[in-house]
Every structure is written in C-alpha cells, then in structure tokens.
C-alpha cells in the first residue's frame, strides 16, 4: 500500500490526476484536495501573471517537515503537496495539496493545515506583474 509523505517544488505544470493516483489507498474513505489558482487581481490591482521562485534546499526541507507534522497531528493515510515555481498565467495552478484518510474530518483538517503552513513558512516568493506594467514582490514592502 503506498504511503506518500512528500513535498516538492516543481518547475513543470502539476499533473493532478497523477498526484491523486498516488494517494489511492484501500484504507482511505476520503480525499481532500486544495488547488491554489493564479487570479487576475490582488489588492485592487489587475494582475497579468505571477512569477514564483524558491530557495529549493530549504523549501523542500521545510515542506517535508510540514507534511510530517500533519501525520503527527491528524489520522491520515497519505499526503502530497506540490508548489510551482516559474512564470504562471492567470488560471494556472500554483499549489496543490491532497490528503487521503479513513474519514473526511482528518482529511479536511490536514489539507488545511498543510496549505496554511506552506504559505506561512516555506521559502517561496511571488512576484506580481500588473496590467500597468509595474511589478512587485508580495509582502516585501516593509522598509528599514
């Protein structure tokens, strides 16, 4: 029986059906998934595309720690998270989390836990390209 506990940064489009197949488990009665999409607006500005970059050595390590924490906190069977880097167009899938479990409660809770922690802790950055031609690194406005 597969028991994936994996986080990875990907420079290629995510193959969602393939990722779901890796979570199939005859013990599981639930699969909760989250897809983060590139939207065309942020804080009042029209967004044309996003560029994600990461610090791969630490991003993979920290992402893997988050998955391990999810296994400690929730009764789950398998969990996978993938985050894109590179240039993404509107509607593109930037992040995907899937969790299978015997019951839906643990699957939902662990899926939520993983995406929130990934957003808050993993060294991944987002540069927004606006319709105006301007660009901006999200969350990097604080000045000395």
């Amino acid at each position: 029986m597969p028991n994936p506990q994996t986080f990875a940064i990907s420079g290629e489009d995510l193959e969602i059906e393939n990722l779901k197949q890796q979570l199939l488990d005859s013990h599981a009665g639930a699969l909760a998934t989250f897809e983060g999409w590139v939207r065309n607006h942020n804080e009042g500005q029209a967004v044309e595309r996003l560029e994600y970059s990461s610090y791969p050595a630490l991003a993979n390590k920290e992402g893997q720690r988050i998955i391990e924490e999810a296994f400690e906190k929730f009764e789950i069977d398998a969990a996978i998270a993938r985050h894109r880097v590179g240039m993404l167009e509107i509607g593109g899938i930037a992040v995907w989390v899937g969790v299978s479990a015997a019951h839906r409660g643990a699957a939902f809770d662990a899926c939520r836990y993983i995406i929130e922690e990934v957003k808050g802790r993993v060294p991944i950055w987002k540069k927004e390209y606006y319709s105006s031609g301007a660009t901006d690194w999200v969350n990097c406005h604080q000045e000395t």
Binding site: G36, Y52, S54, Y55, L58, H83, A94, V95, I115, V118, K119, G120, R121, V122, P123, I124, W125, K126, W137, V138, N139, C140, Q142
Partner: peptide
C-alpha cells in the same frame, strides 16, 4: 548564508 525575505507561497 541566506537572508530570507517575507515568504509568499500559495
């Protein structure tokens, strides 16, 4: 050494 700016994944 890596100085890590505020992260913004997701």
């Amino acid at each position: 050494i890596v100085f890590i700016p505020p992260v913004a994944g997701g």
